[in-house]
Each structure stands twice: as C-alpha cells, then as structure tokens.
Design a protein around this nucleic acid. Structure first.
Length: 439
RNA sequence: CGGAGUGUGGCUCAGUCUGGUAGAGCACCGCGUUCGGGACGCGGGGGUCGCAGGUUCGAAUCCUGCCACUCCGACCA
C-alpha cells in the first residue's frame, strides 16, 4: 500500500475521551472512530489488524476440528424463551421490535440458536462429536462501556459450540478448545493464562478464563509464575489424541482472578518466590455446561443402546475485537504501538525521505515491489510530509520494521533498517536490507 | 442505574462567573523558502456555540426541559 493513496488519519493530539493506552493509540494511529458509546467504526488500519487476529483464531479453530458457519445477529425472542434466558438476561440484551410487532433481539451470544440448528439435523450418536463456530458481531448493552474496544457494546466474537454424546466426550472437546486457545493467543504474541472461572449466566461448572497479562489490565490476578515457563503445543499437535495432560499441566499451577482468589489456597500451593500478582485482560472463556441447553431445548440423539439422551455441550468464546486492544496493552511504548509481527497491519514501512528525488524514488519503488512479492505487505510512505513527521507516524503505527531511504545515505549506497521492537538501526545496502527482511 | 462532569470549526481548548453578536494552537487550501526525528513566512477557507423553549433591546453566556458523551461505583467477551 502507498500511504499517499491510503486512508490513515493519524492524530497528533489524543482525543479527550481516551483513557487507557490501547484506546489512545488506536485513536491516534487512525485505527478507530467512535460512533456512539461503546460502538466503533474500524478504520482501514484497525480493520487490517482485526482481520489478522480473526484469521489466526480461525486457523486454530479449524486445526482443532471446529467447523465454521455464520449465524445472524438478530434472533427471535421465542428461541430465548425456550431456554428461559429471555427474562434472565436482563437489560444487557438489546431487544428490538420489527414492523409486525415481532419481538427480536440483537444476539449477545448464540447458545440457543446453535442448539436449534443442531437439533434440527443431528439425531444419531454416530454424528458426534461436532464443534460448530462462527465469528460474528455481538451486542451487549453494557451499563458503562469504556476503554475503547476493550469494553464496547458491539464487539466481534468467535464463539464455538461443542456437542458430545457423554461427559467424557464433552471434556475431550473442551480440552481441544482449551489447547486451541493456548495456541491462538500465543501466535498473537500474548501470554495468556487459563484461570479457573465462574461460569456466570452461561452456566455449567467447568470454566476457564484466558487472561492476558498486561500492566493496564482491568483486573488483578494472582498466579504461580512457573506457569509462565510452560510451553505452548506446536502446530504438529495431534488433536485426535489425548490432550488431558496438556490441560493438566496448564491448570496445575495456581492462577486466579481477584474475584475467585483464595489466599489460603494460594499460600498452601505456591512457594513464596513463585507468587506473582499482576494485572490481566480476559480475552477468552471456555465453558462446559452439559445439558443445560440441550435438555430444555430437546437437542437429543439416539445412543448406541437405542436410548435418546440430551447432548453434552460446551461453548467457547474469544473476544476478537477486544484482542486488538489487548495486544496493544501488552505491547506498546511511549512512541506508539509495537505490533507483534503476526498481527501487524503491514509487515514493513518504507520511508521515502525525499519524494521527487529520482534516485530515492527509484530505490523505494524497487523495495516496494520486492517486498510485495515476498509477501511482506509493505506500506510505502511516499507523501510530502517532513521526515520528522514520517518517523513519528511509523513509530506510532508500530510496524515491525522500517526501511528508511533518503538521499544522503543512498548517495553512499546505503539505507537504514530499523526494528521497531528494540529500536535497533542498521545501515545496510538496499539489497542487504531486502535480504534481511525476506528471511 | 447511583454519584460527578463535559458539549464552542476536523482535533485540543479559551471565552460562560460579570449578556453586547466568537477566538487561539494544531489540521486544511494557495504561494514561496525549506527538507535525515512532528519546519518557517505571507495570504486564505471553515463554526445553526449539542437540541428545543423561555427571559432580554440583545444570549455561547441567564432560566427550564431534553439529548449525547466522559469519569467514579455496582455488572460483564
């Protein structure tokens, strides 16, 4: 992409309403525009990051055997009356009436609908297990939206739903999602720690929250720091095999959010040197709730013994749009965002320090073509902005690499390659820089 | 929803107390000089002062109602 043709409205001043780093930086970097309380338009740069995070989540879900579909945002109230949640959910659910006075709602989650779909087609244990998911916009009418995309009212969520014949199968499905989450968050450059959780209005007794550690996180967490040393399974992991040992390892150390923290147990189970208190952001939650929905909604299958039984279900959510904020909270400095490469909106920024200078233009164009061919998604700053402004913008939007091409160094055959994460700069020939970037 | 605030050009804000017909910086447009870490000069454009009503000769300013947004708290991917 050429910056002169792109849509990147960066701000020099921070909008007054932005309180936390991710919100401030998303506004300043031209990623986001607020349209109403907790409701945002994703500008092109933000949208690219959102799509990258979504793609990672999708790949890991597919790898774990989940099957993607897409359900509507609007749901019939009657469906929610079947599960009894239409009244239970309260004011957080946005209720809508259409022109025929039919009662609808903007979905805050999809347990009811997926159960309705499942029961319409699946009747035999031979068709189990199944795990269906979608990535779709949700609406929850928060009392107080805040922190930008971290607590919006409209948000993009990946929600998966597993169906099994019995509890043992259900736990195996749960474990597959658990491990997929470890992998997905790790690929985004995040340290996400599973913590035992209350299941809240979703229900069930087995549940984990996945908490990303970040100084500015919304809740305090207490954990055994040894959990940070655990290795995330590689992509060669066999999801058909027994994953309980992986889950056991990751749940074997004390880790709890403030609201379920048990100081006595904490002191009993951890050595003083291993205790760590930090702040965290919840980016995902897994639930196993058995027949809570399948029973009232009559989602049953016939088992091998010929008897009908309600399927065992779990649901698994990831806050995709929140993750954009979470990544920034976990990775930024005083100059701006520092994107982990896998979620960076562009792979490298090429800075043309003197547009109009034939030699510089030619070198930039060559770099742009080569990096595009290499799949690195370069962003070429070919605008007339002054060099200082270009550097500030590049640092702000936080691309992993900056390739700086100007007349002075170029006269000596050199360009500068700067790594955003640590600020390391190297003077190289253009060929060397392109070689380095392509590795 | 309880408490506290804020709405003035695209952004950050002054002006409101004490009523007299709207300002600054940044951004934007033109010309020129510049150009390796957010340039400078000159000229220029842009505002129903959140909305509605009221008081007044006169309202951004005073009064009433409404709306939106922000912050603290309780609730949550």
């Amino acid at each position: 992409m050429r910056l002169s043709r792109y849509f990147l409205p960066v701000l020099k001043q921070t909008p007054a309403e932005a309180q936390i780093p991710s919100h401030r930086l998303m506004m300043r970097a031209g990623m986001l525009r607020q349209e109403a309380a907790g409701i945002y338009a994703w500008l092109p740069l933000g949208h690219r990051v959102l799509r990258k995070i979504e793609a990672i989540v999708r790949e890991e879900m597919d790898r774990a055997g989940a099957i993607e579909l897409l359900m509507p945002t609007l749901q019939l109230a009657d469906l929610w009356r079947e599960s009894g949640r239409y009244d239970d959910y309260g004011a957080e659910m946005l209720r809508i009436t259409d022109r025929h006075d039919r009662e609808l709602l903007f979905g805050p989650t999809n347990e009811e609908m997926i159960t309705e779909i499942f029961r319409a087609y699946v009747h035999s244990y031979k068709d189990l297990p199944k795990n269906l998911y979608h990535i779709q916009w949700k609406f929850r009418d928060e009392l107080r939206p805040r922190f930008g995309v971290m607590r919006g009212r409209e948000f993009l969520m990946k929600d998966a739903y597993s169906f099994d014949l019995d509890e043992q199968g259900g736990r195996a499905s749960y474990n597959r999602m658990f491990v997929a989450y470890l992998r997905a968050f790790s690929r985004m450059g995040l340290k996400a720690i599973p913590m035992k959780a209350e299941s809240g209005p979703i229900g069930g007794e087995l549940s984990h929250e996945f908490i990303v550690l970040a100084n500015t996180g919304e809740s305090a967490v207490h954990l055994d720091r040894r959990i940070l040393e655990l290795e995330v399974p590689g992509e060669d992991l066999d999801y058909e095999g027994d994953l309980s040992s992986v889950v056991a390892a990751w749940t074997g150390y004390y880790a709890a959010t403030e609201d379920v923290h048990d100081p006595a147990r904490y002191e009993r189970e951890t050595a003083a040197v291993d205790r760590m208190t930090a702040r965290g952001i919840e980016v995902g939650q897994t639930f196993f709730f058995g027949d809570k929905y399948s029973k009232p909604m009559k989602a049953t299958v016939t088992g091998p013994d010929g008897a009908e039984r309600a399927v065992q279900m779990g649901s698994y959510g990831v806050g995709v749009s929140r993750l954009v904020g979470a990544v920034i909270e976990a990775s930024h400095d005083e100059d701006g965002i520092v994107w982990p490469a896998p979620v960076a909106p562009f792979g490298v920024g090429i800075v043309n320090l003197r547009p109009g200078d034939a030699a510089v233009d030619r070198a930039c164009e060559h770099a742009y073509q080569a990096l595009t061919r290499a799949g690195l998604e370069p962003l070429l700053d070919d605008t007339d902005e002054r060099p200082g402004g270009k550097f500030a913008t590049m640092d702000l939007i936080g691309l992993p690499w900056q390739l700086i091409i100007g007349p002075r160094a170029l006269a000596e055959g050199k360009v500068e390659l700067k790594r955003r994460a640590d600020g390391e700069r190297r003077s190289l020939t253009l060929a060397e820089a392109l070689e380095r970037l392509s590795q």
